[in-house]
């Protein structure tokens, strides 16, 4: 415990800490009506995010609105719907009354035990010739839509998962065979107590693991031997006159 604890309040208990990195400066969003218009637009974006759960828009506005949405959700989780200041904030940021219910009945239970940020922001490709401005996709996590980024671990039938699965099976088979061989040989040598056998099998297991890791190292460290120019392939390398 550090000595500040008694004198200084823990700021995290007073204000929700955002789980995203916030750029300290305002984004470049210029509107003819000034800051008021800006706030209006941000409210529209936050409302749309809570309503549709995934929206596509220009990057600066998404980036800025994201912070407000995060804060809104975390306040709702902290204080619940009986806290007057929170309810004021919520009714300021959400333009539709029904979304207030969605926030407390749907999103708060969804994110109650959530460990990371509640939203995710992706850069989207430019839509030529519609716009030259950077596009983005802002979404609430845990939304019902199909995922935007490829998740390789989603399906065990993806080709790399099939290959890795088989490699693991083969590795285990080799390991077991080695253990069996070790145990049977040690049993022949000394017919001692069963604890001894167990110990040797453990040793064999660790030995097998070490052997395999050594094999990996050999594979990686094996370098090209440049003296070995007696090649039969036609390699397109200039340093190598022997090869056609």
């Amino acid at each position: 415990m550090n000595h500040f604890t008694n004198q200084q309040p823990n700021i995290n208990l007073l204000v929700s800490k955002l789980r995203i990195k916030v750029r300290p400066k305002l984004r470049q969003m210029r509107y003819i009506d000034g800051p008021e218009m800006r706030l209006k637009k941000l409210r529209e974006t936050v409302t749309a995010l809570i309503k549709f759960e995934r929206i596509e828009l220009v990057y600066p506005r998404a980036d800025e609105a994201r912070g407000y949405a995060e804060r809104l959700i975390s306040e709702a989780i902290r204080h619940g719907d009986t806290h007057k200041p929170t309810m004021d904030t919520v009714s300021f940021w959400l333009n539709e009354k029904s979304l207030v219910h969605k926030l407390f009945k749907v999103l708060v239970p969804r994110y109650e035990n959530h460990q990371s940020a509640y939203t995710s922001l992706f850069k989207a490709p430019l839509m030529y010739p519609r716009t030259h401005r950077a596009c983005s996709v802002l979404e609430l996590k845990g939304n019902p839509f199909p995922p935007l980024v490829f998740d390789g671990s989603r399906n065990k039938n993806f080709i790399h998962n099939v290959l890795l699965d088989e490699a693991r099976k083969e590795f285990k088979k080799i390991q077991q065979a080695e253990i069996v061989a070790k145990v049977s040989s040690s049993e022949k040598q000394n017919t001692d107590s069963p604890t001894n056998v167990k110990k040797t099998s453990n040793e064999a297991l660790s030995k097998a693991a070490v052997d395999v890791s050594e094999g990996e190292q050999l594979l990686k460290s094996s370098t090209v031997n440049d003296e070995d120019l007696d090649s039969t392939l036609k390699i397109q390398s200039k340093t190598d006159p022997v090869i056609a």
Partner: peptide, 13 residues
């Protein structure tokens, strides 16, 4: 389909 280099080296070996 991207794979970590170590995992790929397992496949190679």
């Amino acid at each position: 389909i991207m794979l970590n280099h170590f995992a790929y080296s397992v496949l190679e070996s």
